[in-house]
Design a protein around this nucleic acid. Structure first.
Ligand SMILES: NC(=O)c1ccc[n+]([C@@H]2O[C@H](COP(=O)([O-])OP(=O)(O)OC[C@H]3O[C@@H](n4cnc5c(N)ncnc54)[C@H](O)[C@@H]3O)[C@@H](O)[C@H]2O)c1
Ligand SMILES: NC(=O)c1ccc[n+]([C@@H]2O[C@H](COP(=O)([O-])OP(=O)(O)OC[C@H]3O[C@@H](n4cnc5c(N)ncnc54)[C@H](O)[C@@H]3O)[C@@H](O)[C@H]2O)c1
Lengths: 218, 218
DNA sequence: AATAGATTGTTAAAATATTGACAAAGTAAG
DNA sequence: CTTACTTTGTCAATATTTTAACAATCTATT
């Protein structure tokens, strides 16, 4: 499912690499590096310089022949492409182990996540304070979403509750869902679901370790 | 980097889908479903039945013409392929927000993760008990790894400590690292690193929301 | 201002991945 | 036991992704 941005159709494979570009460029920005060539950056990232240049070319021309890329310019371009400057208003539902980790993580506000409220259905934790947020009851979720014009909902409830919460979020006007529950969520066409399956990484590691001795370049 | 399992070379794209097969089959097993066809399962998963059959064919023949697949058999086959039965001995380093979420998560022991010990360098939390584990000092890490013959290390420290911890793990004989820090880790050839960048999912969501109206099938 | 060297953006060739089609081989039911 | 139906595993066609190559164009230095 490639995406048309402006006049150009961008392949899915390219889109999947954008967050990686963001991560590596952020490091270079923090280091205060002024310029970088496609060869240097691609070596850091473990990809070919050809792929890096090809990927960027879908979005515009960001470099200069004979010079390379200005790090801050390229970083800002990637931020712009990703939509980081949009500051989407967000709620999180399910203040358990994972929910708390996300709420306390500073990296997300840097990425432009504007967390406005956190919700749970467990009376024992409603009212609790976590990193300046007070846990609200899911009963209040629906009206809260509309009052605050929330755009993104993060689901960190057990899988059994995920669809119900998604329905609530959508009814409240949310158009993007970041789902951590290992549960497929059905949504209308105009709502976007991004699933993050943390456990998948572990299984990939298992597989590679089991077949390690047989690892082979084709 | 395709992988040879037995006599056959398995494409990377197939390997990346294996954890998804695991997840969906686990649901069917839990539901007590006896049989499933490639058409049914692929529809659940949002892929083509052709791809499902093609993927499985790299590992053997698991179905029967005219019948489909026996759910438990296929599930066990996927578990076997992934190496879930291996029960790799594991430590976790960095008992912060994310570390605690992982330690408390039940899904990982089901996947065959055999967590043996958890470590941190913050005196304030060394000695604390979390889900039957006592937080140990990183000072004890190196000898512990060898004594217990640990195979996998999970890194949930800040990025700044990740390489140092990885070096320690490798020196102690670990051959698999599951890294959550947004930091590239250099390792010798025989050590496998699996990076899980939780934040990437958020950026993908941002991108898709920003370009939503332009979403387009090629 | 001229020249040597560097590096981009783009093209097209090569490599991978996905899909549709179908023979082979089973099931299920009379 | 036969027939109609289902569904697999595989093949090959199609589509997508990656890579190598290079003209164009900039930098840096004399
Ligand atoms: N913790 C991890 O490391 C981890 C890893 C991979 C996947 N996950 C997935 O993330 C999700 C959360 O995991 P967790 O470990 O934080 O679980 P958890 O049990 O610690 O937290 C779940 C929270 O959701 C709340 N909740 C339950 N039903 C609700 C409802 N209907 N409305 C609002 N809140 C509700 C609970 O009260 C609890 O606070 C699960 O789906 C889990 O499978 C977690
Ligand atoms: N929390 C999240 O939701 C989240 C999301 C994406 C990525 N991450 C990444 O995961 C990692 C952990 O995040 P967190 O939110 O749990 O951070 P955290 O600060 O809550 O926890 C880090 C823990 O590591 C310990 N530590 C620091 N240096 C150490 C060392 N040298 N040896 C042993 N322990 C050490 C600290 O004492 C602390 O307990 C970070 O790299 C972060 O970027 C976290």
């Amino acid at each position: 499912m490639p995406i048309r941005t402006g006049p150009v159709v961008v392949p899915t494979a390219v889109i999947k690499r954008l967050p990686m570009y963001y991560r590596y460029l952020q490091v270079l920005v923090d280091q205060g590096l002024e310029r970088v060539s496609s060869r240097e950056l691609s070596q850091l990232m473990g990809i070919t310089s050809s792929q890096l240049r090809q990927d960027l070319s879908y979005f515009g021309e960001f470099g200069q022949q004979g010079y390379g890329y200005k790090v801050t310019e390229l970083y800002q371009a990637i931020c712009e492409i990703l939509g980081i400057e949009k500051q989407y208003k967000t709620v999180l539902v399910g203040v358990g182990n994972l929910g708390r980790a996300l709420i306390n993580y500073q990296g997300f506000s840097r990425r432009g996540l504007n967390l406005k409220g956190i919700f749970d259905n467990n009376p024992a934790i409603i009212g609790e304070n976590i990193n300046d947020f007070t846990v609200r009851s899911v009963e209040e979720l629906r009206p809260y979403l509309q009052k605050e014009a929330i755009q993104i909902g993060v689901i960190t409830t057990p899988a059994s509750a995920a669809q119900k919460i998604a329905d609530l979020l959508i009814a409240g006007g949310v158009t993007g869902i970041w789902n951590f529950a290992p549960q497929h969520i059905n949504v209308p066409e105009d709502v976007i679901v991004e699933n993050t399956h943390i456990g998948d990484g572990l299984l990939s590691l298992f597989f590679k370790m089991k077949h390690q001795e047989r690892l082979e370049l084709k």
